[in-house]
């Protein structure tokens, strides 16, 4: 592998990594604060992609479509939170796995009824359609570069939000001691709903940005969902910076695995990585409340 090719593959790995981070951040926040394990997080990703496509067709602009899809997905998610998930916070993980498994089936079928069984079209916006020469002799798709930058920007924003704002303070407090937060007169339910909406918006952002690269189709959420779970488990559930580190790690391992290893081994590489890390640290790399 030449140095130039190596650099390109690093970029690919990082780009997959930030995508996974967008997914993992929401999932891990929801888990850390509400103690809810949400299998339907992949459905929100799918919703984000479909809604971006729909709004893009309506407005003629990808960016406008994406901008509209984020709040729309968040609203859908908050409704689901209000109607169903809210009842699950005090249940054990098993009930949560089951109920959100049911949600996946529901969302998949709903999407199929609304948008039809075939894959849906969503194209790269004109300004980002070409390639950029990141290093001499390496043309890299501009859109993927944009995803990488957007993902890093969102990561920075999230860390700022959590470390420096009042909402972030409540999130941190909620994660370490729920009763205390509500005893201090904070509407914990509202906080939960907001956090859930935030996680959904991040998932929608990932889905919307993936849309032009991938087939927008029913079931697209499941393949990324499992990888996302691998990420948050490796990172330590509830830890946002653990999710970032793990997402980049998984992105790189997946990319280089598929290039360097034979096909069968490449498919197992990620799961092997996770098993090894859990043997070494049973609560992930950055355990919360350890």
């Amino acid at each position: 592998m030449t140095a130039a090719l190596f650099a390109e593959q690093v970029l690919n790995g990082l780009q997959l990594g930030v995508m996974l981070f967008l997914m993992a951040a929401g999932l891990t926040l929801v888990f850390g604060i509400m103690n809810l394990i949400n299998l339907a997080h992949g459905s929100l990703y799918m919703m984000g992609a479909y809604l971006t496509a729909t709004f893009q067709q309506a407005t003629g602009s990808f960016f406008l479509g994406l901008l509209l899809a984020l709040p729309a997905t968040a609203v859908v998610a908050m409704l689901v939170e209000l109607v169903a998930l809210r009842q699950l916070y005090d249940r054990d993980h098993l009930d949560q796995v089951l109920a959100t498994f049911g949600l996946i089936l529901f969302f998949n079928e709903l999407t199929r009824i609304i948008w039809g069984p075939s894959a849906y079209f969503l194209d790269v916006p004109e300004v980002l359609s070409g390639t950029v020469e990141v290093l001499p002799g390496i043309p890299y798709p501009a859109f993927r570069l944009a995803i990488l930058l957007a993902g890093l920007a969102v990561a920075a924003f999230l860390f700022f939000l959590i470390a420096r704002t009042r909402l972030g303070m409540l999130i941190r407090a909620g994660a370490s001691n729920r009763e205390m937060v509500s005893a201090l007169g904070v509407d914990i339910r509202l906080l939960y709903t907001l956090v859930f909406g935030l996680g959904a918006a991040l998932a929608a952002l990932a889905g919307g940005m993936a849309g032009p690269i991938l087939a927008v189709q029913v079931g697209m959420g499941e393949s990324i969902l499992i990888l996302t779970f691998v990420v948050i488990v490796i990172g330590g559930i509830g830890s946002v910076h653990g999710a970032l580190v793990a997402a980049l790690l998984v992105g790189l391992v997946d990319t280089f695995g598929s290039v360097l290893l034979p096909a069968a081994a490449a498919e197992m590489a990620i799961y092997l990585l996770m098993a090894l890390i859990l043997v070494w640290r049973p609560s992930g790399l950055f355990p919360v409340n350890a």
């Binding site: 030449t2 090719l5 390109e8 593959q9 690919n12 790995g13 780009q15 997959l16 993927r144 993936a210 690269i213 991938l214 087939a215 697209m220 393949s223 990324i224 990319t255 280089f256 598929s258 290039v259 096909a263 490449a266 498919e267």
Partner: peptide, 19 residues
């Protein structure tokens, strides 16, 4: 190159292909 079933992203393989 043989890729994983239902693999969504081919960026890594495409880089190899170009090379």
């Amino acid at each position: 190159a043989l890729t994983q079933i239902n693999q969504p992203d081919y960026a890594a393989e495409l880089a190899q292909l170009r090379a």
